[in-house]
């Protein structure tokens, strides 16, 4: 394994989002028309794959560091502690009231400011968050950091001093090579996230979480938050609902009703 030396001391930054439990549906704030995100925050399931991937790559590299980077209101660390318990070394959290209402680009600017000083070899993120699912933040982040990016990774390997990534496509997948430093987004199922051990959970309590404000990061407050988003919700209305049609009870003959229906609509 000649590459071990090449990658030793590899630093991986993993973007993680702390979100309200998706099992409890969100609602729109009637005055601001934005998704209300109160209650306790948990680690977005989609991000567990990035954390696991970071841990495995640092292992394969023969050592290094996994640093979590998150932006969340009220200095929330609930989700970060889960990822630290999985084995991440430390976390950087950006928390500032001025960030409320940030859009994807605003979020990317904040994450870029937090990641730049880390000198990461690799930035990992999920393809999209479970609650917002805009799906552009990681690539916006890569552009701001001047990094190449490979999105929708189904497999990530260290090869030739850089990465070899299997990237999901509409037709199948592409094998993509990419030098480091780089940003990669991983799909769910790319690796099997480990469950935090008891020791991990206890250890996570003492792992460092650096909290930054917008001013700390030298960011212009106007670049993020409501004003930075430069988009407004104009109105919210119920959508046209489909109406339920005929419902038949199967008495051993329902397949005939299906065939008749398919004939009617000329599928048969």
């Amino acid at each position: 394994m000649e590459w071990v030396g090449e990658y030793a001391g590899m630093k991986v930054a993993v973007c993680v989002k702390q979100i309200p439990d998706p099992a409890t549906p969100g609602r729109l704030d009637p005055t601001t028309n934005t998704l209300v995100r109160d209650g306790k925050l948990i680690l977005d399931d989609s991000d567990a794959y990035g954390v696991e991937m970071g841990l495995q790559l640092v292992d394969a590299a023969g050592g290094g560091e996994v640093v979590l980077v998150s932006m969340a209101p009220h200095r929330e660390t609930g989700g970060l502690r889960t990822a630290l318990a999985m084995g991440a070394d430390r976390a950087v959290l950006v928390s500032d009231d001025a960030l409320a209402g940030s859009d994807a680009l605003g979020t990317a600017k904040v994450l870029a400011a937090a990641i730049r000083p880390l000198g990461a070899d690799l930035v990992l993120a999920a393809t999209e968050s479970t609650d917002g699912y805009t799906g552009t933040t990681p690539v916006q982040l890569a552009e701001l950091l001047g990094l190449p990016s490979v999105t929708f990774a189904k497999r990530v390997e260290l090869e030739g001093g850089g990465l070899r990534v299997r990237r999901q496509t509409e037709a199948g997948y592409d094998e993509v090579t990419c030098p480091l430093p780089a940003l990669v987004t991983v799909t769910a199922g790319v690796v099997e996230p480990r469950y935090p051990s008891f020791k991990g959970i206890m250890g996570a309590k003492n792992k460092p979480v650096d909290v930054h404000t917008v001013a700390d990061l030298g960011l212009d407050p106007a670049a993020a938050g409501w004003s930075g988003a430069r988009q407004v919700i104009v109105d919210v209305a119920p959508s046209e609902q489909r109406r339920a049609g005929e419902v038949v009870e199967d008495q051993g003959d329902a397949h005939q009703a299906i065939i008749r229906f398919l004939e009617q609509i000329k599928v048969l």
Binding site: A142, E143, G146, L147, P148, S149, V150, T169, A171, G172, Y173, D174, E175, V176, T177, C178, P179, A182
Partner: peptide
Amino acid sequence: GAAGAATIVHRHVA
């Protein structure tokens, strides 16, 4: 520059 360095080396069509 570096940002454009990701290269497809093989396409697999399922």
